[in-house]
Write a protein that binds this DNA or RNA. Structure first.
Lengths: 145, 145
DNA sequence: CCAGTTTTTAGACAAAGTCCAGATCACGCG
DNA sequence: CGCGTGATCTGGACTTTGTCTAAAAACTGG
């Protein structure tokens, strides 16, 4: 866990530093992808990223986008959010926090960690170690009965 | 939420009652599928169910299994568990509870609700209503360094 | 500039799940 | 009973997300 990073579009230099700071070689494609991810607080699917990166001109292939998102997640630069059976979301916010997930709209919203307390987290079974806790509050649109 | 149901293999009659009690027409295929789901406390993917149902002789098609699992979940007979990007698990236990998920093995384990307290659940955004809370503790196998 | 490593790429592939149109089944009714 | 109607089931085509592979390109340290 780390401090919530600033969420203004980042300069080329800032993005480069972000990658190198996480032991990631800053290649052209990775920079492009990181730019998209960190442009603002948002939750993008791999396909969203692919489309945005190649919006105007081709900048990265599908394989590279998938590889890069996996790499970023493994290095702790972004976080995978698994709430929708059909696709993974990637969250540039790696601070401890949780999510509302609107099952009607597919919308995903952050919940600050300090707005929700978890007590008595049970210890992981022997032979295993905790890797993270996800709390998802599923919501629906109110029935306009 | 309801009381944890017994988890011994159920009689034909018990399964029928379970379905009718949830407003589900007890057809032959639905009974077969329910038998598999409620045979014991377990977490099965759609494909697991499909295989088990048709183990010896063909009893239900893929489409029916998917439809039926969706129907059961919509009627509150079982619960969808979304922890693995590649497939949905179905949990016959509809009591309030949470999960350990071993990302190395894909194993899914129950955590009784009373072993973990959630405080200060934030209210859903206006226009929406809560539909359920999922808590997933991701675990890894301990490195045998 | 060269050799070796890392990264990127197009496109084939795989797995989970959905959709469809026709066949089948179930049930109330005459 | 036999019928008609609506619900259910089915195989198979299809879609979507994501993975794999083998070769091309780029980058690195000498």
């Amino acid at each position: 866990m780390q401090k919530r990073p600033p969420r203004q579009p980042l300069s080329q230099q800032q993005v480069t530093d972000l990658l190198t700071g996480h032991d990631i070689q800053p290649t052209q494609q990775r920079l492009e992808i990181a730019q998209v991810l960190f442009a603002r607080d948002q939750h993008l699917s791999a396909d969203d990223v692919l489309k945005q990166v190649n919006q105007d001109t081709a900048r990265a292939s599908k394989a590279t986008v998938y590889n890069t998102l996996g790499l970023f997640a493994a290095k702790g630069l972004i976080r995978e959010v698994i709430v929708d059976p059909s696709r993974v979301f990637y969250d540039p916010n790696t601070c401890e926090h949780h999510h509302f997930y609107n099952v009607d709209t597919g919308e995903l919203m952050d919940i600050d960690a300090d707005r929700l307390a978890l007590m008595n987290l049970p210890a992981p079974p022997t032979g295993t170690v905790a890797d993270g806790v996800d709390v998802i509050i599923r919501i629906r649109n109110q029935a306009t009965a």
